[in-house]
Nucleic acid binder design. Structure first.
Lengths: 216, 216
DNA sequence: CGACCATTTGATATGGATCAAGCGATGTGG
DNA sequence: CCACATCGCTTGATCCATATCAAATGGTCG
């Protein structure tokens, strides 16, 4: 089911001065696990997370799920090179998401070079992320989990304490592991004093050096 | 991406009419295994394969190599979201490569919307490729090899007979497997009549359906 | 308190890695 | 033109990291 934004009555984008893509579009709330869009649906919108966390994923024919990425407040998602979505998107937690017409962005980009540049920058970031992710998937379980924790810490403004909004299953499906392996690996990292699990969702990085070394 | 001082150095691009990025730049020959650029070098150029095949790759601290992609004639590579290369690039076979100043492309994109669009399209293709590649890396050995063969066949204008320019080691490093597993898997696929190895480098797809099914 | 869900921990199985050897094609120097 | 070295590929035997199967623990909410 495609998420439709509320009907836009006032043409905000009409007066939007050269600047930011996210000036056009409508905020929409999604509940936990609500679908934002599905794989193979027309990619008529791009999205920006206002609050909450979003995951994109694909399900293989045998039921395995691969998560493409986690999107935190401020992140944009839903970019596609074709006109269909190649991943699905769901809210992990209750989330507010800005929904932006792709055609409006395209039109704006035609007139405003800075918007065109922004689009390219964001697509470039998605590319860099996919390449990093790809590198994770050929590593050992310890390296993948360490890499994941470092990524999350980095995105949490480099703080050492990270609150994970996603389940072990989400992490496992992001890293191409099972929940058991993720859980065991976190326990190992805790035993080796690299991290501390104050609760199962709140993780303190005690020894980034060790994590980076694992991350090869 | 491509945020650079718009210094206009090449007079050629000054007359280049709206159109194709690859109108500017110089062709350069590279021998087998010659380096085109290295990871962490400044990304001052983008590249277009004229003839031959190119691989991009990263080497992890313990010596494992991960190949990011194979580039065939007509393909462009070297796009980066930062100003450094995050992968290295080498010629797999003797190759001719068009070398294009990034600053020239940026400058052109500022004046010519179609060039800006082209840049976005190509970055989008790289993104789509990385995402496909990523999906391969969480599958079984059979699925990875089948997916690789289908990708190669598709890029060879959909022909059923594919001449592979790369070694088993290259394939293994692309798929996150060992050469032994790649070799054994190809043998299995041959035994199950899905493919035929007329020589070790020339592969005939006998049963695409079976390969697609494996590819999940 | 009891039900449910997420997480951890334990025991066993297995797909692919590793170690090892052999084979065929290609190229080179004598 | 042959002998031999080299390189890419295949095949076999064994090992091991992670998956799978199973159960217990903990945390949350009605």
């Amino acid at each position: 089911m495609l998420a439709r934004p509320p009907v836009q009555t006032t043409p905000i984008s009409a007066h939007a001065l050269p600047g930011s893509i996210d000036l056009i579009g409508a905020p929409m709330p999604f509940g936990r696990n609500a679908e934002i869009y599905g794989e193979n649906e027309p990619a008529d919108y791009i999205y920006k997370v206002i609050s909450g966390t979003v995951r994109t994923y694909k399900v293989l024919s045998d039921g395995r799920r691969q998560i493409g990425g986690f999107y935190l407040p401020g992140d944009m998602f839903g970019f596609e090179s074709g006109d269909m979505h190649t991943f699905s998107a769901e809210a992990i937690t209750p989330a507010k998401v800005l929904v932006i017409r792709r055609s409006a962005v395209s039109a704006l980009a035609e007139r405003d070079l800075s918007v065109a540049r922004q689009l390219l920058v964001m697509t470039g970031h998605e590319l860099a992320h996919a390449q990093n992710h790809l590198m994770l998937l050929v590593k050992t379980a310890q390296e993948r989990v360490a890499g994941f924790l470092l990524e999350m810490a980095e995105r949490a403004q480099g703080r050492n304490e990270v609150e994970l909004p996603m389940t072990r299953q989400d992490i496992a499906d992001y890293l191409g592991l099972t929940i058991e392996t993720v859980s065991r690996t976190l326990t190992q990292l805790e035993n080796s004093a690299a991290i501390e699990l104050s609760t199962s969702r709140r993780i303190v990085l005690r020894n980034r050096g060790a994590l980076h070394r694992l991350n090869s």
